[in-house]
Structure formats: C-alpha cells, structure tokens
Design a protein around this nucleic acid. Structure first.
Lengths: 130, 130
DNA sequence: CTCCGTGCAAACGATTTGCACTATG
DNA sequence: CATAGTGCAAATCGTTTGCACGGAG
C-alpha cells in the first residue's frame, strides 16, 4: 500500500502546518473547504488518520471529545485549557517536572497535569509470544 | 441538590470499587446488570458522572474512545496498554520521571508517555476578568 | 409528599464505512 | 491501467437527554 499525494491530501497537510495549531478534523475541514469546496469531511478524517500513521503529523487524544492533530511531529508535551480546550505545545526539561506543578507555564494558570505512560502490558506481551 | 443513595448508585459504586480496575461505563453496566437486570445504561452513565463530580470516584479521559472510571480517588498516575487498552495505576516519585522513559514499569514494555498539563490559558483568564 | 433518580427510547456528536466513481503513479 | 483515494450517504459507537413514572428522605 503506497501513499499517493493527492490534491486533497496535500491541502490538508498544508493547512494543518500553516495553522500552527492543534486542530480537530472538522476545524481543518472548514479551512480546507474554503479552497476546495467539494472536499468531504470523510476525506479529512481518512487523511488525518493515514498521515498520522505515516508519521507525517501527530495525533493527540487529549481530554475532551474530539481528537486533535499536530503539525509538529517532534517530541514535546502539551498544555491544554480546561475552559476553551485550546492546546499548546510545551518543550520542557522533563527532569524539572516535579517543580512545575501548580505554577504558571506559558501564561496558563496551572490546575494540574496528567501523566500517562503507554506500552504493552505483561498479559499482552505473553499473548504475543503465542 | 443533595445526593440520594439509591440501590443503583450503591451497586455501581460497589462494583467499581470491587473490580479494582478502570472500567468503562458499559463494562460496569454489564457487571451491575447481573445483579440488577432492569438497570439502564443511562443510569450508569448518570451515576458515574454524578459520583465523579462528588469526588467519590475518579474520571479518566485517557487515550481511546471511551472514558474510564477509577475507584481510587487518591493522586496517582496511570499506565495504559496500547494493545488491550487496560489501565493500571502507578505511584511514582514524579522527580524520577526523566529516568523512567523507555524502561519497563510494572511489567509493561514502555513505548512512550504523554504528559498533559491543564489549566486556564491567558486568553481565558483575560476573558474571566471582564 | 417532594423531588431526585430511574428506565426507556430517541437524539446527538464524532467518526467510520460501503459503494460507485475519479485520478494518481 | 491498476488500484489508492474521493464524495456521498448511511451506519456505527459512545454518550446524553426528554419524559413519565417510581422511590428515598
């Protein structure tokens, strides 16, 4: 399965990178639609999925209902507003973490943070060996 | 608006605590239904929401589509399996974070972690003052 | 008795999918 | 040309809500 660079795909990628924001599928859809009125929301969803699997963009499954997509694939953390749900990037020395809670970061009044490790659990590792 | 302790609410709470797991609403529904066949899924949703607002349980909006609920309201972090989506608790000294990535924790083969600060952004803080 | 809580079904919002058509490589 | 990608509409999934009835305090 090889990737084709269609106009739609290119436009989606371009608009996401241009935005410098963490957009949801439908926010991106609205933007792309201005330049490509006949594009479908399903196409946006499909491409965002494909592009994130290909590592060309990042997928964020943060708090809130909608997934957001990140133009920046480098390793970085996020900070999100519990009120308006915007998401900003954060580049911090992870060793300083302990010090940072309940301070102010990037203009945010911090109310907390969530740390979530991911991996494969022992049961699944065992299952994989079979 | 005061909380009434109905049979349904009590059962939901009890089953969640008993499970020692991070269940989704419908997983919990299936368990409670065995003892209370006429309970509705909506009731489970409503009670999980109410109980988490009351601070009697924790609400997790982790990766994946479904919310999960935590019987343990103490402060702790989480680790989740990218394969079977189970979630386990983690109690770690947050200052050691920098050292932990890409090691093995609690039997998991770690593939990464996500850190997410929450708070109110400067724009919202400004808005609130008005 | 007063309302908070319940069960049911219908509504909802985000995302996914089947299908016939289009266009990239 | 082969087959990945598209647009459309319908389907799906998790969750929420309106309503009339039931039960806790």
């Amino acid at each position: 399965m090889q990737l084709r660079m269609t106009n739609q795909r290119e436009m989606i990628l371009q608009e996401l990178k241009k935005s410098k924001d963490h957009l949801t599928a439908d926010e991106l859809y609205e933007r792309v639609k201005k330049k490509m009125p006949r594009i479908s929301l399903a196409t946006v969803y499909r491409n965002l999925e494909i592009l994130s699997e290909a590592g060309m963009i990042g997928k964020l499954e943060v708090s809130g209902r909608q997934k957001r997509f990140d133009w920046d694939t480098g390793e970085h953390d996020h900070i999100h507003c519990i009120q308006c749900h915007r998401v900003d990037n954060l580049n911090l020395n992870r060793k300083e973490l302990g010090l940072l809670s309940s301070e102010t970061i990037k203009g945010y009044r911090i109310s907390g943070y969530r740390l979530e490790f991911s991996g494969v659990c022992s049961q699944c590792l065992k299952k994989n060996r079979k």
